[in-house]
């Protein structure tokens, strides 16, 4: 019997490109801090200052492997509405919401929640853990 080297391609292609995280917050200082700590981990961060900005980015075909969004934001789409829109339209993208207010009802475990003020390292750990669990599901 002649042994042959397998030339079959693996069933699953490994996506080695950096993960894309869409950070949505109208406070530029918070956005800047979160974005920097994620970029230091090799994550590609897209910064949006409103729900409209974020939805527009997704509609334009922009890639997002995870969305980290504040809840209270000016404009017609707040963080909860954005999370609902993402759940309906891009169900594979995990969403983490944050707020300095009362923990919103009705999240039903579908999205994760972080209270403000938060430690940047805790947010980063949660983001990395969520990205790993999602296994790189992406939009765009």
């Amino acid at each position: 019997m002649i042994s042959q080297k397998s030339t079959a391609k693996p069933d699953v292609e490994i996506d080695a490109s950096p993960k894309h995280v869409l950070v949505v917050d109208d406070d530029i200082v918070i956005r800047l801090l979160i974005a920097e700590v994620m970029r230091d981990e090799g994550i590609c961060v897209i910064e949006a200052r409103s729900g409209e900005d974020a939805a527009g980015y997704l509609k334009s075909g922009g890639r997002a492997d995870l969305i980290f969004s504040d809840i209270q934001m000016p404009g017609s789409i707040d963080g909860l509405q954005l999370a609902r829109y993402v759940r309906e339209t891009y169900p594979s993208i995990p969403v983490i919401l944050t707020s300095g207010g009362i923990i919103p009802q009705g999240l039903n475990g579908v999205v994760k929640f972080v209270s403000k003020p938060f430690r940047l390292n805790s947010v980063l750990e949660l983001v990395l853990e969520t990205l790993n669990a999602a296994g790189g599901a992406a939009n765009g």
């Binding site: 590609c44 910064e47 949006a48 900005d53 527009g56 980015y57 922009g62």
Partner: peptide
């Protein structure tokens, strides 16, 4: 415009 800003920022990074 996020769609203009993001790729330019990434390119410069």
């Amino acid at each position: 415009d996020l769609v203009i800003r993001t790729p330019l920022a990434q390119y410069l990074r």
